[in-house]
Design a protein around this nucleic acid. Structure first.
Lengths: 212, 212, 212, 212
DNA sequence: CATGAATGAGATTTCATTCAT
DNA sequence: TATGAATGAAATCTCATTCAT
């Protein structure tokens, strides 16, 4: 009422205010744990430590908030940070990528983004597509480009690099991803990942390495 | 009272009455399209062509109805019908299995069981586990047993048959399954499946065939 | 369909058929235990050992069935069977009546009719009135008539016999009825009833006995 | 953030906010008129002048709302406000108490708390016990203590003061309470109460006054 | 008459969203 | 901006009642 001088500094530019961050943080946890329908705005507010009303100051509705979370997951944690140096040899790069990819899809601590988005993709095609493009297709695309580079470097002989990339990506998940998702299994141990990725690399090279 | 000759009609034995079937049919559609939370009992009743009350005559509650659907999917359509004749050669068997597996996981007409169960597995661990055991692990197990037979028959050389089975299963999905789930893509064309499965078989044999 | 000769004997005159009895028996238990709203027609059918449909063959609706129960309670168990021989002396008759009355209002085995009717009286004034007239007012009226006889016989001196009858009736319940109703206490022991009734009789006579 | 001087309004302290009062008021009317089962949350909301949702902001569920009503009735209107000055003579005190007690149990305007709780006591033993302890037993206990004081003062000669208190309490209701409950009779006229209470006092003293 | 499958109205409860402060 | 009280639409589930057999 009194409003003693409206000297609030011109901060909080609405884009990355700390409240917004707080909300996104809380919402991510809740959405990823419970799914879109299972998450309630009340629970999100509680976890984020803000009031329910505040959620609507920053986001139009539940759907837009969810979109923002998925966007962030897609862009930020989507694995745009794999290193595909075309100069390095396939065995090393593939092995590194395999480990990194498992870390992305079997992120420990519950709350799988990939599952959450998968679950809702039929009802929210745009969201599904965006996540897929960034995280799945984006990764496969960059891996495919790397493979093409190694083909050009005469290390590999691959007919369809995009298919090969997808094959490798999936092989790395063998025996690891589905139990993690379906059984609530903990994130796989480093040893297990080592073994699976090594096997995938071996298999990949057995099929695609250019023998001299 | 007299009722000479017990010609009473089948009296809906409650186990496979047509109403029960009707409900399961409708519920399957709705659950698989919208997920557990997205599906409402009202919508299920509408699609099944019965009243809301009738749903509760046959199933205690929404959860039990969902369970029944998943059970049916797991047992009935779960691919227990793959033919793994240990006498047949790997190339043929793997190719056939690959096609059959894609037909299971990319079933056309929308409503993916695997996605629906995946989505809810964290909140309903029992349901997730049951589906996984029947459909995923069951299939891999039988495929692994077949592979072992071929190892014994000196056709293949495989260290870890279970891992190899999982690898093959996943490779068959390359470039097909995730777009189907995330993008709402239609079920893949026979040609596309042919190509992917053929590549998977080639790769598998390149890695595991015992060369003489 | 065949209806082989409609020789069904003219029994089951709808008035006291055994099915009707069965239903009334079951309904009484359920209504008295759970109250009008708490009782469900399904539960009544179960306890009575008939199908739900059969209930509606004998009674138009739930309300009419309840009415029939209350009617029976009122007429049949309503204590129309107290013996008020105007020739017998007050002390004996009052003491006997006191015991009998407690047996009526604290009927063991749960399921108090008086409570059940009390509970619904506001919403079903006719039912309440009928029960009151038969069981409460009827009893008091007959007791009052007896008292008047003893006044005429010069044993008692009572100004308002109806009031006196009500006073005695209530005093007999002292410390017994309300715990039975509110606390779920078991039916009072004979010793406790003896004591309370004796005290009531003593008090009644102290106030109303005509001392010579 | 700055909020110079914490002049925030009372902020509805959730304990005695006016909305809470409004709800309790409306719920009391509806529950007392229709009983626990007969009352619907929708009707309560309508009578209270709030939305159905608001009911659940203040009370977890229907049962808790009911409990709160009964608690209030027990503690607040339970007649803890009878004056039992041990110095005053029995005739006066008993007469005053008799009138006050009738006012409690035959409260005009419909909606008897005692009936409502009685009706549900078997299914909600805790609620029944609480109400009984506060309103019935509490009152009898205090009356018994007063009587004991008058015994000590040589005004009365009573063997069992608790029984005597219960007897008096019940006698005051003679011809008044049950018609009020069963017949939907209006609250008794002052004249009627005068007469009944006077008779109860006379009877009580005839039995228990210590004659010199 | 007797059944029990089927119904649909209505009950309780949840929750995304709004709004006055 | 931030709040949280309030809302009302919609969800799950119950149950009195009907009806074909």
């Amino acid at each position: 009422m009194i409003d003693a001088a409206d000297t609030t500094p011109p901060v909080t530019p609405d884009e990355d205010s700390s409240k917004r961050r707080q909300i996104l943080e809380g919402a991510r946890k809740v959405f990823m744990d419970l799914g879109f329908d299972g998450a309630s705005m009340g629970e999100i507010a509680r976890v984020a430590g803000v009031s329910k009303g505040t959620l609507y100051v920053y986001f139009t509705d539940k759907f837009r908030l969810f979109e923002a979370i998925v966007e962030e997951e897609a862009v930020h944690r989507g694995g745009s940070n794999f290193s595909f140096d075309p100069a390095r040899d396939a065995e090393t790069v593939l092995s590194e990528f395999g480990h990194a990819w498992i870390a992305v899809v079997c992120r420990p601590g519950g709350g799988s983004a990939i599952r959450t988005v998968m679950a809702i993709a039929e009802r929210m095609p745009e969201v599904g597509r965006r996540y897929y493009d960034c995280v799945i297709e984006g990764t496969i695309g960059r891996l495919a480009a790397y493979l093409q580079a190694r083909v050009d470097a005469k290390e590999l002989a691959i007919d369809d690099c995009h298919l090969a990339a997808s094959q490798f990506q999936l092989m790395c998940q063998a025996t690891l991803f589905l139990p993690f998702i379906f059984q609530g299994a903990p994130a796989p141990s480093p040893g297990a990942v080592d073994k699976v990725v090594a096997s995938a690399v071996r298999m990949f090279l057995a099929a695609y390495a250019l023998r001299t």
